[in-house]
Amino acid sequence: MTAQRRFVRRTVLAVTASVAALTLAACGSDGDGKASSGTASASATATATGGHNAADVSFSKDMIQHHRQAVEMAGLAAGHASSAQVKSLATKIEGAQAPEIRTMSGWLTSWGEQVPQDMSGTDSGMDHDMSSSATPGMMSDADMGKLEKASGADFDTMFLTMMVEHHEGAIDMAKTEKADGSYAPATELAADVITAQSAEIEQMDKMLGKS
């Protein structure tokens, strides 16, 4: 091997190692509150796709809070519900909406927008009263207090009734995003919300004996 070929080979290896190191650093996370790989991925996607507007920002901020309340409601089922179907549905709701919160948070971060904190001003320990005339389907503090105190069959009925209303609000918000939004991943998520939550409303209506 000539000296020139050895030099070229060493240069290529060095560049490859540098690229790998930068990739690992970009995807990594530490304990100092830096973005996780999931949030970083969502931010990168948002930056690459671009083309967001005010409707996309409003949808993301409002739906984050809406999802947070649904996740809180779903979290009560394990200790309060008597129906295995209700518990299973609650687990499904939490499993679907928690990742969507992270995705929308990544979008907002990439757009230079503030990710809304929960109403207690922290990232955990939500204050219940997030209801707003501008956010359809949100439960009031009184509603959430009643749900927390209920158990057994009473909880099952109350949970399903409230979650149907909650889902209907989310569908309204998603329809607005589909009509007014310009950021493709956000309008696609809105379409997914409409499909998934419409199916869950149908399921919950059946569980309530409405159909």
Rank of each mutant, 00 (worst) to 15 (best):
D129P: 07
S124P: 05
S18G: 12
T45H: 15
S82M: 10
L76H: 14
C27N: 09
G50Y: 06
A78W: 00
G125D: 08
V71G: 07
D56R: 05
S124Q: 13
G33Q: 04
R102I: 12
Q97D: 01
E113M: 06
A96W: 07
V71D: 05
S120W: 04
Q85K: 11
R102P: 00
M130I: 12
A90N: 01
A42E: 03
A84K: 14
L22E: 01
G112N: 05
M130H: 14
A142R: 13
A74E: 00
P99C: 10
A70R: 11
Q69E: 01
E148I: 03
T39C: 08
D127G: 03
G75A: 07
M104E: 01
S18F: 11
S36R: 13
L24E: 03
A74L: 02
S29I: 09
E100T: 13
S60P: 09
N53R: 06
E148L: 04
A42F: 15
S36I: 10
Q117A: 11
A44L: 14
A55C: 10
G137K: 02
P136K: 11
A70G: 11
A77Y: 03
D118Y: 02
V71I: 15
A48I: 05
D127M: 13
M104Y: 09
H80M: 04
N53D: 13
E72P: 05
